[in-house]
Write a protein that binds this DNA or RNA. Sequence first.
DNA 1: AGCTCTGTTAGG
DNA 2: CCTAACAGAGC
Length: 372
Amino acid sequence: MAMHLASMVHGSGREREAHDQRYQHQQALQQTHYYQQQQHAPQPHPRSYAAAPAQYSTHVAPQYAEYQYQRQHPQSPPSPPVEEQKPSLPSISSLLHMADGERPASDAAAQSPQSQQPSPQLRQEQQSTMAGAKQQQQQQESRPEQQFGPSIVSHPRLTLPPTPPMHPDSVVDGNQSPSSASTHSGADSYYLGQSLNNVEPHQQRQVGAPMAAVKRSSLPQSSMSPYSTSSYAPSPYVSSPGAASATSFYSPEPHPYQMGLYGQRPLPSNFQPQMPLPVPTPSGNGSNPWQHHHYISTSSQSVFPQSQDRYICSTCNKAFSRPSSLRIHSHSHTGEKPYKCPQPGCGKAFSVRSNMKRHERGCHASTTTLTT
DNA sequence: AGCTCTGTTAGG
DNA sequence: CCTAACAGAGC
């Protein structure tokens, strides 16, 4: 029966086939899981830069509209004018009755209070968009389905109090769009660097620990780093972002990690951020892993420092005025702690020398005073 | 110009 | 409280 509805509502062609299969399957699953998914749909990262989500919402949402319509219709109209339902719903009802026979449990779940959550607005949006296009199609294709339309547009429930709008994309593609959208935080840059270590960025993204290493740099990147938009690709110094870090533009020290991740060079004073705006490629794995997370406003270009902070971390794009600062900063990405507490028995290591000194003073005050 | 140290802030 | 990380001052 789902097939009927789906095929009736949908257009034809491959998309419909794919949809039907998927729809059938989803119907069975989603009747009970839909709202769970909705609740679990990842929220956009608070720091993510509003760029992406909109583009993901389109072609998946409609099926939910159908689904919602189909599922909610029977349970609901708070005060369904009988005369309205009579002419408009018979076929739907019959379909649903069939469904009842097939999956009583699912419908029971569908009628649970929780199932009321989905915002009428959402449905309204979806219906309004869908109804317009598809009703006409339906009316042309098969007459009976036209009841579908009127019941939608005139349905009293559409006037229900507004609830927080739910984005179809977050509902439907929760694990796709938000994640890709949320990758705009500077943290991703870190993973980019990590990805050089033969680990997929998205895999790393699931590893919580490394996040700590970049938590600080992620913020400054968005706020202060004008290079974020893409100091890599079009840079005269960098021919291939992936290989970029392997090239030592600035590497006074022979540290391997610098060569690998932080090969950095002073920006020319006349450097112009000429690079095109970052393209939020949904195809994440696109040829260029460096592209997928840069959603910095173009206005940031105007703040580009001409002479200061010429040393840019290739991982997080943070700028430093001194190479040593960049080097120290790089430790935060690599996790390297080259400064070890000299005190015997204390194996503590630090990424910043001064922190080690401080530790030494604090924790080994007595011994240090003796030794010094 | 660059390094080291100190002070400060923020997170766990 | 401890540590990570950063900015600024002094050298």
